[in-house]
């Protein structure tokens, strides 16, 4: 059976590529998700090519217009073209998602490795991390955005803060169990310097779960940005993001639901794709899952 599936589904090839045992099945859903995500990323990155208008050009006389040849998805309360804003808005939303995930993973990895390896630092670091985890993420982000003012960088910073502890916990738990492995103990007894051990032996162990974690952080950051915008604490009004297009449009929900519908649809599809890909990656990387699949 394994041979058949490898020959007929593209998943077999990918599985081999990722070094997974033969027979790991990837359904059709993740492929749809990947295609959808790629499509969204491409039209977003190349927004200038597809946008019929300047996304921030005001036109008070064209407020809240319905769909037309000139404005395919209509206009918002400032008379700006909704299609162009949704396309450009993806740039900011994806940037926030990717940057938050990247910063949270890098910072969390560093802190987690230290906590996992140095007993002394561990207690202090973990108490601080527990404290950050205890504060509800939206409240923490609201307070942080209020400090730094509404901008893309402060939103990224604010969301990153509540995501770091989760990464630290993950990395630390992996390090703690890996530290007991014979090859690490051997390296320590051979007098290898700590940074080298961390880098050479422990980093690889943590990489796969971190990638999975990163997809979830990316998805949740895009959503939290929308919530912050809804509360009036997003990135501001001029530069579009999916979140603030919806936040600006929410007053007009009964009047012109399309202002929320289109950015909401694209945002939800994007988050959905990222989550599905994350789930798929986790299932493939989890050895116990693999055992059962086989």
């Amino acid at each position: 059976m394994a041979d058949v599936s490898r020959a007929t589904t593209p998943g077999g090839g990918i599985a081999r590529l990722l070094g997974l045992p033969p027979g790991t099945r990837i359904g059709v859903v993740p492929w749809i998700a990947l295609a959808m995500l790629l499509f969204i990323v491409l039209v977003t990155v190349f927004a200038p090519l597809f946008s019929p208008h300047d996304p921030i050009a005001l036109s008070p006389l064209n407020r809240l217009k319905p769909s037309s040849a000139e404005f395919p998805l209509g206009t918002d309360a400032y008379g700006r073209d909704v299609l162009s804003r949704v396309l450009y808005g993806g740039q900011v939303s994806l940037l926030i998602g990717v940057a938050t995930a990247a910063i949270a993973v890098v910072a969390g990895l560093a802190i987690g490795l230290v906590a996992g390896f140095f007993r002394l630092a561990d207690a202090l670091i973990m108490r601080v991390m527990d404290a950050f985890m205890a504060i509800p993420p939206v409240l923490l982000a609201v307070a942080l955005v209020a400090i730094h003012g509404a901008s893309v960088s402060s939103v990224i910073l604010a969301i990153t803060f509540s995501e770091i502890p989760r990464v630290v916990r993950l990395v630390r738990s992996i390090v703690l169990s890996a530290r007991e492995e014979p090859y690490v103990e051997a390296a320590i007894s051979l007098g290898t310097r700590m940074p080298v051990i961390l880098w050479r032996h422990l980093m690889p162990n943590t990489l796969a779960p971190l990638i999975v974690q990163a997809t979830y952080i990316c998805a949740s950051a895009i959503l939290i940005e929308a919530i912050l915008s809804f509360l009036g604490l997003g990135i501001g009004t001029e530069t579009p993001s999916w979140g603030n297009i919806m936040a600006d449009g929410r007053t007009y929900f009964m009047l012109k639901p399309s202002l929320i519908f289109w950015p909401g649809l694209v945002l939800s599809l994007c988050v959905l794709s990222i989550n599905i890909l994350g789930d798929t990656a986790r299932d493939m990387l989890d050895p116990r899952m693999r055992k059962r699949e086989a």
Partner: peptide
Amino acid sequence: MAISVAGFSVPAFV
């Protein structure tokens, strides 16, 4: 699983 992933992919205010 698809329904449940969709559940937390849509912002609450929507």
